[in-house]
């Protein structure tokens, strides 16, 4: 028979959050169902699969790619993705001579509509501290080693523009349709810490 797990002890932080939410509900200031809806949106609906669709469309349709690089916010909205922390978007393209990587040294700015909520490492001190000063060292930790003649272009996105990297289309993907292309695109390649 499996042992019954003891109930986990609620952390001090968890208690404090519960207390704050309870007070705000009692004062009639928040509706907890709105919190449920927000959590559901960013846990199940908004995430890096959205960004992958944008990238695949850009690879598949040269006219779309042109629009995306010229006015990313509108082009991304064409696919139905917009809003909080993606109000003003910029897409930067990786080429044979340029590799882009995104960071926010001051907090953790990140394009929610296309990538969802940021992973812990993106918000962590080591990533924020080192990406600007030692980008090649950071990329190496993600298994990404680039030739010296490639310009590593680090975007410290500390204002209200949000950035998405358009990775290089992988060799051998010429025959693939848009959906199959999207399946190749990873979150980390759209932050720019990996290549495909």
């Amino acid at each position: 028979m499996a042992k019954t797990k003891p109930a986990p002890v609620e952390s001090e932080t968890a208690i404090r959050v519960r207390a704050l939410e309870a007070i705000l509900i009692e004062k009639g200031l928040i509706d907890p169902k709105a919190i449920d809806a927000l959590v559901d949106t960013y846990e199940t609906k908004v995430g890096p699969r959205n960004g992958a669709k944008v990238v695949a469309r850009a690879w598949f349709d040269p006219a779309y790619k042109q629009r995306l690089l010229a006015d990313a916010t509108s082009a991304i909205k064409e696919l139905g993705f917009s809003g909080m922390q993606g109000e003003d978007m910029v897409v930067v393209e990786n080429t044979d001579s340029v590799h882009n990587v995104i960071v926010c040294t001051l907090c953790s700015c990140y394009p929610w509509p296309t990538l969802g909520l940021p992973p812990v490492w993106y918000k962590s001190a080591p990533y924020r501290a080192r990406t600007v000063s030692d980008p090649r060292g950071v990329l190496k930790e993600f298994g990404t080693i680039l030739p010296e003649d490639v310009e590593v272009r680090v975007w410290d996105t500390t204002a209200e523009l949000r950035y998405l990297v358009l990775p290089k289309r992988p060799a051998g993907s010429e025959a693939l349709g848009e959906e199959a292309l999207a399946a190749l695109v990873t979150r980390d390649s759209m932050i720019g810490v990996t290549v495909l």
Partner: peptide, 14 residues
């Protein structure tokens, strides 16, 4: 008061 029906609206508009 932010109600659940407004969540998709504010999320998509920002």
């Amino acid at each position: 008061l932010l109600t659940p029906d407004l969540v998709p609206v504010i999320s998509a508009s920002g």
